[in-house]
């Protein structure tokens, strides 16, 4: 995607989005509701035409030759797009035939995919009785029927219970291992961290950051050290002892008068130094815990607001 813009009335859903995903890579498109994630996916899957800019799949322009693009992509949208009156197998064969695979090939692919997504036993049951997790698995299976070179997963775990979410993560991780190019959108920071090799952070229709999960975490300045000491009256002194060793302000913890938080640069061997310095100052240490920043911390640092603040998309 290059300089893609899309307006809906007064709202600029996409305001010049640039995004390149190398073949075989798994990218996470991360942002709050209304950031432009779904709109980006809809432009790339030929569902909506961009107002400006260009988008290409395997070098093929989505506006100039949408049909060629459609032969190469698989889309799993925000809703499990299945016909619940049909059985799982019928849903798969139906989509296979619309991909023009032919009846025999569609049936064979349906059988393969039911097995792969652990739906063989439920394959001939009507989808209406399926759980949310089963519907999502069927949904992904349907988008894989014609072996797409690029797979779009728009919020694949939204609305799933924690157990189904973990199962879905395994499914997506397997796809990645197969070499399918995957662009997944999510508002769950943990999900992007877990599945994507690179994360593109999007907010208000702009790409505001891009990098590996570790690179993005490093943007907040490294790690945080939670220090607890034995005696509350030593806290002030302990904090001033550590200040020269830290990368930023050392802050007391409000609800525990024996603890404070010290930011450090990740990767340098600062923890032994911290313990030694406190020991030399005669302060008894109860606990030192290193906390790597979560992507929530990263999002806050990048955008100045919390990721789940906005509504509507």
């Amino acid at each position: 995607m290059h300089g893609v813009e899309k307006r809906f009335g007064e709202t600029r859903a996409l305001d010049g989005v640039d995004l390149t995903v190398p073949r075989g890579a798994v990218y996470g498109l991360l942002g709050p509701n209304g950031a432009g994630k779904t709109t980006s996916v809809k432009v790339l899957t030929t569902l909506i035409r961009p107002d400006a800019g260009a988008a290409r799949i395997d070098g093929i322009d989505v506006v100039a030759d949408p049909d060629a693009v459609r032969h190469r992509i698989g889309l799993t949208g925000q809703y499990a797009a299945v016909d619940e009156r049909l059985t799982a197998r019928e849903n798969l064969i139906y989509v296979g035939r619309l991909f023009h695979l032919g009846a025999t090939e569609s049936k064979a692919r349906a059988r393969e995919l039911l097995e792969r997504f652990d739906l063989t036993d439920a394959g001939d049951r009507v989808v209406k009785g399926f759980s949310g997790g089963m519907r999502r698995r069927l949904d992904i299976a349907m988008s894989l029927i014609a072996r797409p070179s690029v797979l779009f997963l728009d919020e694949p775990t939204t609305g799933l219970d924690p157990r189904s979410r973990l199962a879905m993560w395994d499914v997506i991780a397997d796809l990645a291992a197969d070499g399918t190019t995957v662009l997944l959108t999510t508002q769950y920071l943990e999900e992007a961290d877990r599945l994507a090799e690179r994360i593109v952070v999007i907010d208000h229709g702009h790409v505001i950051a891009e990098g590996t999960p570790d690179e993005l975490k490093a943007r907040t300045g490294g790690a945080l050290l939670n220090v607890s000491i034995a005696r509350a009256e030593n806290r002030e002194r302990a904090m001033s002892v550590l200040t020269p060793l830290c990368s930023g302000r050392v802050e007391p913890v409000t609800d525990d008068d024996r603890s404070f938080v010290a930011p450090i640069v990740a990767g340098d061997r600062v923890v032994p130094g911290v313990i030694r310095a406190l020991d030399e100052a005669g302060i008894d240490v109860l606990d030192v815990a290193v906390r790597r920043p979560s992507l929530d911390d990263v999002f806050l640092a990048l955008t100045g607001h919390i990721a789940t603040e906005e509504e509507g998309e």
């Binding site: 899957t45 569902l47 032969h71 992509i73 797009a81 619309l98």
Partner: peptide, 13 residues
């Protein structure tokens, strides 16, 4: 409303 139209429109049909 169930997103099935989105799926069908993303197919080469």
């Amino acid at each position: 409303s169930k997103g099935l139209v989105d799926r069908l429109r993303s197919l080469p049909m």
